[in-house]
């Protein structure tokens, strides 16, 4: 490997890295919101909306992000809906992630034993208070490991953004391999930057998991 080549590649990778994490984290934030809403609608069996949320979750959990992006980015403009590549990345990741987060939150809510709710009610709390003070925090606690896994999964999924011509890390690597044939250096930088992006998240996830252990229901 040639250090000079690595050095000359650095600015391009750094720029691509920033773009990737920007879209990645915006998408994850969107996924959190969509997932939360969808899980509530399903958990509280709100008519009609519950159905729609259910179809949405099945549809987006069972299709690849790349195909979702192709449809949104290349297909929708043909019927008059034009979305910029970056917005498309955020939207695609948000929709994909929302379907995963929805399942995570929903099973978290389901995992709370009914007696937890009853004991809070028996202390005189209102239904709203029981949800805010007991059910929601417990459901989130239970969900921490799954949320961490989702976040890692979604950050990894950002690797397909190059397909809709976003100049992300994959795009940069492929471009440089095509241009200069310094394959080793280009791939090394690719791995390096993905490690920088994901290793801290992976470690933080494990720490979070250890912290919440012991605060789960049924212990």
């Amino acid at each position: 490997m040639d250090p000079e080549v690595l050095k000359s590649y650095l600015p391009r990778y750094a720029e691509a890295f920033l773009l990737t994490i920007k879209i990645g984290w915006l998408g994850i934030a969107l996924a959190f919101v969509i997932g939360m809403l969808s899980a509530f609608v399903i958990h509280f069996r709100i008519p009609v909306l519950k159905r729609i949320a259910g179809y949405y979750v099945e549809l987006f959990r069972n299709t690849p992000l790349l195909v979702q992006l192709f449809f949104i980015y290349f297909g929708l403009p043909k019927v008059g809906i034009v979305i910029s590549a970056e917005a498309c990345g955020v939207l695609g990741l948000g929709l994909l992630g929302g379907s995963y987060m929805s399942e995570t939150f929903r099973s978290g809510l389901e995992a709370i034993p009914a007696a937890q709710k009853e004991s809070a009610l028996s202390l005189g709390m209102s239904r709203g208070q029981v949800f805010r003070e007991i059910i929601l925090p417990e459901a989130l606690t239970i969900s921490v490991p799954a949320i961490a896994a989702n976040v890692i999964f979604l950050l990894k999924e950002t690797s397909v953004f190059s397909a809709i011509s976003l100049m992300d890390l994959m795009f940069t690597a492929k471009d440089l391999i095509g241009l200069y044939y310094d394959t080793t250096e280009a791939l090394f930088m690719l791995v390096l930057f993905y490690t920088i992006m994901l290793l801290p998240v992976s470690i933080l996830g494990s720490i979070a998991e250890k912290t919440v252990r012991g605060k789960m229901p049924g212990q």
Binding site: I152, K156, E157, T158, S159, V160, M170, A173, K174, I177, T183, T184, L187, L190, V191, Y194, T195, L198, L199, V201, S202
Partner: peptide, 20 residues
């Protein structure tokens, strides 16, 4: 496997193996 996107692994094997 946990932190590397499959896409990166594909690139490593497809482009990397032939080169290295």
């Amino acid at each position: 496997v946990r932190i590397m996107p499959q896409m990166v692994l594909l690139f490593l094997v497809y482009f990397g193996a032939s080169r290295v």
